[in-house]
């Protein structure tokens, strides 16, 4: 499978490896929709387990976006990972898996990563008017949107 993908996309597949028995692919951001589509249609990864991200502020491409996929037919998991900079956005996979909808919204909510083509990209867990994306490393653990808290809850601090 890896050989085929590598043959098809060449250096677009940066890394295809296995750690602790779990396979993962690192893919160029531009190839993401194609690779995901191929993984689902040809390789039967029909179940998108999770979409998540991680923030590395010291890197040039600050964010890892990770898709965790599972194939019922192969009983196998795979992680697809891509790196993007803060200004970049990722194509949405809502047209590939329905489940991506809320998962992408959560990533947007927590990291501020935009997903192009998402039908309704808005905050999901935090209130709509909230400023900041809490799971970024530069967002302190007791930090909060003071303004929002004051306007909506009428208190100085939520602590």
């Amino acid at each position: 499978m890896v050989a085929m993908l590598k043959g098809q996309y060449g250096s677009g597949i940066r890394e295809a490896n296995s750690y602790l028995g779990q396979n993962y692919l690192v893919v160029e951001a531009s190839l993401i929709p194609e690779v995901l589509q191929v993984l689902r249609d040809r390789e039967q990864f029909d179940y998108c387990v999770d979409i998540t991200a991680a923030h590395y502020p010291q890197r040039e491409k600050q964010f890892d976006v990770i898709w965790i996929l599972y194939s019922f037919a192969r009983n196998e998991r795979i992680r697809v990972k891509t790196m993007i900079a803060e200004s970049e956005s990722v194509p949405s996979s809502t047209s590939i898996w329905g489940t991506s909808n809320w998962l992408e919204r959560e990533v947007y909510d927590m990291f501020g990563i935009r997903f192009d083509g998402h039908p309704d990209l808005k905050r999901i867990l935090l209130p709509d008017g909230w400023k900041g994306h809490p799971l970024r490393k530069d967002y302190g653990i007791i930090q909060q949107d003071q303004e929002w808290v004051q306007i909506n809850l009428g208190i100085e601090s939520g602590q």
Binding site: Y19, L20, Q22, Y24, V49, D50, T52, A54, H55, I66, I68, R77, R79, L135
Partner: peptide, 30 residues
């Protein structure tokens, strides 16, 4: 390293995705 592990919770697949940077705290836990 990174790890994804999931179990069958009563409600469905409960997964933990942990990114470790080698320190005592998870770098990212999903």
């Amino acid at each position: 390293g990174e790890i994804y592990h999931s179990i069958e919770a009563p409600k469905g697949e409960l997964g933990y995705f942990i990114v470790s940077d080698g320190s005592t705290q998870p770098y990212r836990l999903r």
